[in-house]
Computed example of a mutant assay.
Amino acid sequence: MVFDGIIASFIVGFLRKGNLRGLAKLHLKWGWIFPLLLLFQMIVFTLQNKVSFLGTTSGYIYIGVYIIGMLFLFLNRDNPGFIIILIGVFLNFIVMAVNGGRMPVSLEAASILEPGYLDILKHELYAKHALLTEATKLGFLGDIIPLSDPYPRTQIISIGDVIMNIGAFVFIQHLMLHHRNVDKLDAHLQLEGGETK
Rank of each mutant, 00 (worst) to 15 (best):
M1N: 10
M1Y: 12
V2H: 11
G5E: 03
F10W: 00
V12H: 10
L15C: 09
L15W: 02
R16Y: 12
K17C: 04
G18K: 00
N19E: 11
L23E: 06
H27F: 08
G31P: 09
I33F: 04
P35G: 12
L36M: 14
L38Y: 14
L39N: 07
Q41R: 15
V44T: 05
Q48N: 02
N49T: 03
N49V: 03
K50C: 02
L54S: 03
T57E: 11
S58I: 07
S58C: 12
I61K: 08
I61Q: 07
Y62G: 11
G64F: 06
I68K: 02
G69T: 01
M70T: 05
D78K: 14
N79R: 15
P80E: 10
G81S: 01
G81M: 03
F82E: 10
I83V: 15
I85H: 06
F90P: 02
L91P: 06
I94A: 10
V95Q: 11
M96C: 08
A97P: 09
A97R: 12
V98G: 11
N99R: 06
G100A: 03
R102C: 03
P104C: 06
V105D: 02
V105E: 01
S106R: 01
A109Y: 14
A110N: 08
L113G: 13
E114F: 04
E114I: 10
L118C: 05
D119G: 11
I120L: 09
I120D: 13
K122G: 05
E124H: 14
L125Y: 09
L125F: 03
L131Q: 14
L131C: 08
K137T: 02
F140N: 08
L141K: 13
G142T: 00
I144D: 10
S148I: 03
P150K: 08
I156Y: 06
I157C: 01
I159F: 15
G160F: 05
D161H: 05
V162C: 01
V162S: 02
V162K: 02
I163R: 03
N165C: 15
G167R: 11
G167H: 09
A168N: 12
F169T: 15
V170N: 15
F171Y: 15
I172M: 01
Q173V: 05
H174G: 01
L175I: 07
N181E: 15
V182Y: 09
D183I: 10
L185D: 13
L185P: 02
D186A: 10
A187R: 12
H188E: 13
Q190E: 12
T196S: 13
